[in-house]
Write a protein that binds this DNA or RNA. Structure first.
Length: 210
DNA sequence: CGAATGATCGGCT
DNA sequence: GCCGATCATTCGA
């Protein structure tokens, strides 16, 4: 794995064209290897995205915006690509999604796991767990806690210069053969959609969720 | 207004 | 493998 500290690696924030791609599956796959950075509370934390899931309304019964259901909560999913959709899950976990596609199409990508890159000490402090750093960010609720991504930030435009978090391309993309598509996690209730292979993982990466 | 429900996690058996 | 935590959101009366 190339180090992010490598001075030859370039750090470029993803442009609107990346997020606005109408094909959420393509975006979900392309996000593997990109780097999410959060700058919150004077702390910089980042990690390489190693696991994602695509959610695509209106036909996806696993999506909160299934059948284009638009409520106070799901409204941001209809924004143009590049916004953040963050919601509370099971009353405890803040799950972080990247809205994709043009305005009006409720497409989103859930970040499920990252490999920690910068700000390890801050992440350990926020997570308050013992043991391996593996436990830091190997799940959607865990990475959100480590990067301090909270529901209060839902609707943030990551293309804004003032955004507290954003995604960068640091030229760390995996070999395409190392990205595997599998069934999504925890969506058994969504009938025929439950088996769609819309989860993408960096094969063999230790931070991919269980 | 009340009741049901999670795109999860960690601890326990 | 199972189960409880814990609450915003949603829907129906």
């Amino acid at each position: 794995m190339k180090s992010a500290a490598n001075k030859h690696s370039r750090a470029i924030r993803l442009p609107l064209s990346f997020y606005r791609n109408p094909d959420v599956l393509e975006v979900s796959r392309a996000l593997i290897g990109k780097v999410i950075v959060s700058s919150i509370g004077d702390q910089i934390c980042s990690g390489i995205i190693v696991e994602t899931e695509a959610y695509r309304a209106p036909e996806d019964k696993a999506s909160h915006a299934y059948d284009n259901r638009c409520t106070d909560r799901t409204r941001v999913m209809f924004y143009r690509g590049g916004h953040a959709y963050i919601y509370l899950c099971y009353g405890i976990h803040h799950l972080f999604n990247i809205v994709t596609g043009p305005r009006g199409e409720a497409h989103a990508v859930l970040l499920r796991a990252i490999e920690p890159l910068e700000g390890l000490q801050t992440m350990r402090k926020r997570r308050t767990i013992e043991g391996s750093d593996r436990q830091l960010t190997n799940g959607p609720g865990k990475l959100s806690e480590a990067l301090h991504l909270k529901t209060k930030y839902t609707g943030i435009d990551m293309l804004s210069a003032e955004a507290p978090f954003w995604i960068e391309d640091r030229s760390l993309a995996p070999d395409p053969s190392d990205v595997q598509a599998t069934k999504r996690i925890g969506v058994e209730y969504s009938e025929e959609c439950a088996d769609w292979p819309w989860r993408f993982i960096w094969n063999g990466n230790p931070w991919v969720s269980k």
